[in-house]
Design a binder for these strands. Sequence first.
DNA 1: TGTACATCAGTGAACGCGCGTTCACTGATGTAC
DNA 2: TGTACATCAGTGAACGCGCGTTCACTGATGTAC
Lengths: 183, 183
Amino acid sequence: MRYPPDHKAETRKQIVETASTEFRAHGVNGVGVAQLMKSAGLTHGGFYAHFDSKDDLVADAIDAAFDQTMAFLGEAASEAPQRQRKRAILHAYMSKKHRDHTERGCAIAALGTDVARLDARTRRRFEARVDSLIRLIAGNESQSAREDAIVMLATMVGGLVLARAVRSEALSTEIVEAVQASR
Amino acid sequence: MRYPPDHKAETRKQIVETASTEFRAHGVNGVGVAQLMKSAGLTHGGFYAHFDSKDDLVADAIDAAFDQTMAFLGEAASEAPQRQRKRAILHAYMSKKHRDHTERGCAIAALGTDVARLDARTRRRFEARVDSLIRLIAGNESQSAREDAIVMLATMVGGLVLARAVRSEALSTEIVEAVQASR
DNA sequence: TGTACATCAGTGAACGCGCGTTCACTGATGTAC
DNA sequence: TGTACATCAGTGAACGCGCGTTCACTGATGTAC
């Protein structure tokens, strides 16, 4: 059957959005191409009309995740007075809601340890987004703001990884609150 | 063939040590039982004489990794004067050497995002080790020292995850140095 | 206007492969008589 | 002391399964004449 001119682009976008969610929830190795296509309402054979390989999709899915996180943190930052900019970002990021929704959250906290094992090309694209995130947190181009932003990003990412990895609600909450209170 | 009485225990230990290294380097899903047994100098069939399942091994392998990290950080802490305790731990942890040797490094930074997807039993064991690590960093039982230790652990873990995930040596080094300089 | 053909997003069977796991077997040594 | 049997860590073929990927095919619509 013939489709409208932008149909294929729409389908591709749908696959990327689905993959972005599923990869964050279950890890890159935790979801197969067939499952992904089924979640997107398609059959697995059509996948290769849109992507060269699963790895090719992974890079796009990570980008889509960063888009969400940048928009979310950008909004939190723009709503706060300049003095409380970093504090506002920290509280937006380090929340129980974010902890409990890996599938809609930060790609670094969801897939960070996986990314270190991906190919160089994907890691370069990942790095560009990490750098943008550092700039967003820093808020200006000074060296000291940048260094501080790196440390804050590290604290947020590590805090979220820890809060998600431990089993008890008590320790997990303790981690979320300790990191929140650190600024 | 018959073996000395402690032979089986020795073999088991060898498998756990190998798994601990390989899992950290390639992820839990990145190494198979057959590869693991081969690395340990055995054939894959014998695996189930030592462990109920691969998951059963994962928990032991993570424990072995924590043993290494606790010993390493404990030593760094005990060599420093009390005032510089946390600083000594931070510098021991957040180093290029640690960044470049995932396979001998901290289990949280190597497998943190994987652990969140493991079964409850393994996550409980993981959590107990995280709690020990927090106590080691804190150095005393006060609430404020504990909170501070949690934040420092989050910063170290996140910093190492970021430094390993990005592709360029320049940004990776910038992350290592920014986190080091934060105390 | 009517017919034949081209297009192409999506379908679903099939591929080779490596996975975790099972199991009948091996063979050197210890034990029983 | 010599022979028959028990032990058991480790072997390696085989299992069903899901993976990423390929490919001949479908069928609704657009285009050519």
